[in-house]
Design a protein around this nucleic acid. Structure first.
Length: 111
RNA sequence: CGAGCGGACUACGCGGUCGCGGCGCGAGAAAUCGCGAUGAGGAAAGUCCGGGCAUCGCAGGGCAGGACGCCUGAUAACGUCAGGUGGGGGCGACCCCAAGGAAAGUGCAACAGAAAUAAACCGCCCGUCCCUUUUGGGAACGCGGGGAGAAAUUCCCGCGGCGGGCAAGGAUGGAAAGGCGAGGUAAGAGCUCACCGACGGGACGGUAACGCCCCGUGCCAUGUAAACCCCGUCCGAUGCAAGUUUGGGUCUCUCUCAUACGGGUUGCCCGCCCGAGGGAGUACCGUGAAUAACGCUGGAGCCUGCCGGCGACGGCAGGCGUAGAUAAAUGACCGCGCACGACAGAACCCGGCUUACAGGUCCGCUCGGAUC
RNA sequence: GCGGGUGUAGUUCAGUGGUAGAAUCCCAGCCUUCCAAGCUGGUCGCGUGGGUUCAAUUCCCAUCACCCGCU
């Protein structure tokens, strides 16, 4: 299943206000059922200069891309990482899978 | 070989798989899909200067304000760059400098010091009385203190003084009335002289800054203008969130204002322009609005060669087509290599400056040592 | 992206070319049976680097950090 970028500030505010937040070691996810699957990443200035922020966004999108195909019902998602010394796709991907499976947003990745 | 100086370049590479932005082609009614080539920097950064571009009821003048400041050139322009001049640093290659005016005026110069922009405090010398060959010594005078004595008076100690000459010396200070040496003198003094410095004039060289030489003046006098200031040159304001197009129309209510007024134009004045401008209600139709499209990338463009110029740069010829996003695109994984990968991400565009940066490559040069 | 402002003691603020100050905090002493209050004394600083000047917190330049405004 494909996904869209979540761009509108009003929609992001709505997700933050009404959505459910779940946390893991490296990031948090806020989600809200919607008509289409949308995703946004939140990387503020506390993460460093623009080069470092851009890299975190790329890593998050790369990690999310693998799991987007398995989403069963449309949902709006916000991916909020936590400040760390180093970031890796493996850790983000592991935590995204753990959270989405726990909240039954994706079909259980049995294989 | 060691130490160093200047300049230029580079910024992990290769292969595979999956993905992203806009573009082209093809398919499709459309969403979208497929294929192809392409896609961050030398600083993209800081936003410190300069310009292009855009807008303003018009861009005119003056004041205020700001910036710059050796000369000549380069350039669209600059606070940038190039080549020179002068000054400073280094043995040297070379590096650094906001470097106009202090006899237009005003201000400031703490502390120290005799004195701070100003001259006589100490001092030196001659004379005024006496003695002495001289060095020197003494007396007389005034003031203060002390002792003796009934008092007149007398003794001792200290300080000071008369008439002139002088600016050499005086523990300071960033700065002390040109410096230093000699002559000279009662003592001294650019008083005189040599050298250096300063100032004025002239000749020569240079486009100029300036250099160099000659002559003259005994020397009108500190520093600070990145203090106010003076002189010269330049500056309209606002910045792509500029601005353009679609983004509505009707109705009701209301505020300000009428040429001696209001609004706009640059902070102020003059001048000029306009006669209307704004707000609210949300009743009806309409309505993606922090939106869509344009601005948005072909430009003082880049590369190569030749020519002119010491150079910055300019001219000519040929070639290239080289990000254009809008919550914002370059990444992940695997393999190989090694020096194990620094600083860092376009947001209208250029020219500079400044700051950050693991390393690597090349060219030219200096000093020292050794060897031939 | 564009424009503007501020950095002085642990904290809140003065100062504006020559010695850096107030309150509070902290420390020590006195007072008190002890604590608080009070009294006395003390420690601690001009964001950083250059430049101008005899002399810089002050003037100039660069840099760093923080804050504000413009849709």
């Amino acid at each position: 299943m494909n996904y869209l970028r979540l761009k509108k500030a009003k929609k992001i505010a709505a997700v933050l206000k009404k959505g459910k937040m779940v946390r893991a070691e490296t990031l948090s996810i806020v989600y809200l059922p919607a008509e289409e699957t949308e995703m946004a990443v939140c990387v503020g200035k506390k993460f460093g200069k623009s080069v470092e922020r851009n890299r975190i966004k790329r890593l998050l999108r790369e990690a999310f891309r693998a799991h987007a195909a398995k989403i069963t019902s449309p949902v709006s998602l916000l991916l909020i990482p936590k400040v760390a010394k180093e970031y890796s796709v493996r850790e983000f991907s592991r935590d995204i899978e753990k959270l989405l499976t726990k909240e039954k947003i994706v079909e259980s990745s049995a294989p």
